[in-house]
Amino acid sequence: MAERKKILLRLDPAVHDALARWAGDELRSTNAQIEFLLRRALSDAGRMPKNSAAIPRRGRPKKAPEPESDDAPSDDPPPDGGPAAEG
């Protein structure tokens, strides 16, 4: 994967604050929000390069589903009408 480009961006403080709040609302960093918005604008304008890579996923990876075992307790009531059936 090619190294990501770094740029210096000067913003009005009020614009930066609004952007940071918006990013927080969508659980993104301010930088990720800027890239998301730029990509959306490029796509809407029909200018998104065909060879552009997807936005890298950040954060904790999704958990793999745990294999079910025969020893695991079940949420179903016992077939004999035992203590789980009382109540």
Score class of each variant (00 low, 15 high):
56 P>F: 01
13 P>M: 04
34 I>L: 03
71 D>P: 03
41 A>E: 06
23 A>T: 02
35 E>F: 02
79 P>K: 00
62 K>V: 06
75 D>T: 12
39 R>W: 13
61 P>H: 06
73 P>Y: 06
60 R>G: 01
60 R>C: 01
87 G>V: 01
56 P>I: 02
79 P>A: 05
26 E>C: 11
52 S>G: 05
64 A>I: 04
63 K>M: 07
22 W>K: 15
14 A>M: 14
1 M>H: 13
3 E>L: 15
49 P>Y: 14
79 P>M: 05
68 E>F: 10
49 P>M: 13
51 N>Y: 10
56 P>T: 00
40 R>T: 10
17 D>T: 07
20 A>W: 00
45 A>E: 13
69 S>T: 00
22 W>N: 12
79 P>T: 02
51 N>P: 02
57 R>L: 09
61 P>Q: 01
28 R>M: 04
78 P>L: 09
35 E>L: 10
29 S>L: 09
87 G>D: 06
81 G>N: 05
39 R>E: 12
82 G>R: 03
34 I>E: 01
29 S>I: 08
15 V>F: 12
53 A>N: 02
43 S>T: 05
38 L>C: 13
12 D>H: 11
64 A>N: 03
74 S>P: 02
26 E>M: 14
43 S>K: 13
46 G>N: 10
77 P>K: 08
73 P>H: 06
24 G>W: 03
41 A>P: 00
25 D>Y: 09
79 P>G: 01
8 L>K: 12
68 E>S: 13
63 K>F: 02
57 R>K: 15
9 L>A: 08
46 G>L: 11
32 A>Q: 14
3 E>F: 12
52 S>N: 08
57 R>W: 00
62 K>F: 05
68 E>K: 12
